[in-house]
């Protein structure tokens, strides 16, 4: 019993890190440009397929494929921004919600036509590692480590590079940032690119241990919403903690009740936090 608990807990926590960077992509875009990206899930799914084809098709090792996927994600995100979002960035929120959802529809439509909805999985077995009594799957452990690395990387990028500082300036006050000469269109495009990069990378990591289809993204998008709200929308660092909380819930709930109750709890929690603490459990600005 205790073993099962610990194992389930560790599994949940490791997954939580990966979910965390998916949510980080969502919440970065929200925080900087006040856009809820409804194409997030399909971008996660594209990340899965990117790693899959680079590995199965071209024989590139999944973790190297992940780096390529990140680059592709960044470029793709910038393109999406200029095509779909830039024109409505100052319009009421309904416009950006629908613009990003239209991108979602296009990706899912074309993706279903090309990839069909047959489940895939990446044949990558790195064995497992034993900590005392508990066994941890290597792919999950590595995914968690990479996720933490990505999160730290993002933090350093935002803190110490010029584009990062621009992003933070635009987050604080876009008008003021424009007045002092920050190129806001480029900064917003870069942000959308980074958000997409994070979605794609998290998708690629999930694909190393879960089977997937082009439609799998929706589940992870909804999880990203929950995590984003737990950690505070617009607070990328909070997302990592939000991810851990969700991971904990997913690890612990099955011990007490059937797994199918997990989403009920998650979404009730989601709505409650929106109502009671819209800036997340850790507060934050506004």
């Amino acid at each position: 019993m205790m073993d099962a608990l610990i194992r389930s807990l560790i599994d949940g926590l490791l997954l939580g890190f990966v979910y965390g960077i998916a949510a980080m992509g969502l919440t970065l875009i929200w925080g900087v440009m006040n856009v809820i990206n409804l194409s997030h899930g399909s971008l996660i799914a594209l990340g899965m397929f990117s790693v899959y084809y680079l590995f199965v098709g071209l024989g590139i090792h999944p973790y190297i494929a992940l780096v390529l996927t990140a680059v592709l994600g960044l470029i793709f995100g910038v393109i999406i921004y200029f095509i779909a979002v830039h024109r409505v960035i100052n319009a009421p929120e309904l416009s950006t919600l629908l613009a990003t959802y239209s991108v979602n529809m296009m990706i899912l439509g074309i993706g279903t036509a090309i990839f069909t909805t047959t489940p895939r999985n990446i044949p990558l077995d790195l064995g497992s590692i034993q900590f005392g009594e508990t066994v941890v799957t290597m792919t999950r452990l590595i995914a968690a480590v990479i996720s933490v690395g990505v999160a730290v990387g993002l933090f350093l990028f935002l803190k110490y590079t010029r584009p990062g500082r621009y992003i933070r300036a635009v987050t604080d006050n876009r008008d003021a940032a424009e007045i002092v000469g920050v190129p806001s269109a480029q900064v917003l495009a870069l942000t959308f690119g980074l958000g997409t990069l994070l979605a794609a990378v998290s998708g690629g990591l999930i694909a190393t241990f879960f089977p997937f289809t082009i439609l799998s993204g929706e589940t992870y998008e909804l999880k990203s919403f929950v995590i984003g709200v737990l950690g505070g929308l617009g607070n990328p660092v909070g997302s990592l903690f939000g991810g851990l909380i969700l991971g904990l819930i997913e690890g612990l709930v099955p011990m007490a009740m059937p797994t199918t109750w997990t989403p009920v709890l998650e979404f009730v929690l989601f709505v409650l936090i929106l109502l009671v603490a819209p800036n997340g459990l850790f507060g934050g600005e506004e």
Binding site: A84, V88, A99, S102, M106, L108, G109
Partner: peptide, 17 residues
């Protein structure tokens, strides 16, 4: 037939924009 969803997406985007 297979691209129905994608075409609806393009249409939606054009309307929104």
């Amino acid at each position: 037939k297979n691209l129905q969803l994608a075409i609806s997406g393009v249409l939606l985007l054009l309307i929104v924009l």
